[in-house]
Design a protein around this nucleic acid. Structure first.
Lengths: 137, 137
DNA sequence: CTACAAGCTCAAGCGACTTGAGGAGCAAGC
DNA sequence: GCTTGCTCCTCAAGTCGCTTGAGCTTGTAG
């Protein structure tokens, strides 16, 4: 029992807020924490590691359901390939989002740039952005 | 009254679903539609154009509040520069998201690639992804 | 002993929709 | 005229990943 940490400490060390921590327990991403006599959650090192792992997966935009799958595959009979499949799926999603964002950035910077060129010296209500938006498919 | 369209037709022509169409009305992105004697919404060409404009703005990831601002700036006394400011703000947001997605894609493809190399021939439960995730900060 | 921080639970809110239940309108075929 | 079946209506709740708030208890330092 050397390292019995409060939820606040766990939050500080894992990088998620106290509220998020409780939320993860509620939805089953981490096991239900042990409690003190007074009813407070107690965290130990493995619990913190689990929290960090969940945070890392979330930062990679894995959804909660996908993280559950991953954790199951890790603990259970799943092989590395099961895990990799989940990662690959996620990669496809991220790549698609990246492509969309790229196109988006080009469109937006084009619009804003045009406007800067055309309207900066003579601000009017006949905006090039509005023109562009109204015409472009 | 040459072009009096049902909500279904409006949806088909504007590219948003019937439900989304009603939702946009509810939150005030489009004006409340006129109704037939029977209580059904009636759309005309300007209404469809407005819907398309909203769709285009949403596809550029403008939030509903930002679209309202834009529409107000367009109809009201706002100048082109007001509109451009909103677009620039959006561009900053999109660029930040792009940077995050880029990093994410590199991380994920690294993980999945490693796994393919290491585990493809000998699927085990000692997954390189899991190893990586457990160690990486 | 008394503050006061930090913990607890439960409930609701966010954004942008989607989904579902339960009913009404309306054109076409019989 | 009547029924079939599609479209439409409203209202309510669900989605995702949290965050925020109210109102209470626990633990600790002075």
């Amino acid at each position: 029992m050397s390292t019995a940490l409060s939820i606040g400490e766990a939050a500080r060390r894992s990088g998620c807020t106290v509220a998020t921590n409780r939320f993860y327990e509620e939805v089953g991403l981490i096991p239900e924490a042990e409690r003190t006599a007074g009813g407070r959650r107690v965290f130990t090192r493995p619990g913190i590691e689990r929290l960090k792992l969940v945070r890392r997966l979330r930062s990679m935009e894995f959804g909660i359901a996908a993280i559950k799958e991953l954790l199951t595959a890790m603990r259970g009979a799943g092989t590395c390939l099961d895990v990799r499949d989940i990662a690959e799926t996620q990669l496809q999603i991220v790549r698609a989002r990246r492509a969309k964002i790229d196109a988006l950035e080009r469109t937006l910077s084009g619009l804003a740039g045009d406007c800067t060129l055309m309207c900066a010296e003579s601000p009017s209500s006949e905006c090039t952005i509005i023109d562009n938006l109204s015409r472009t498919a």
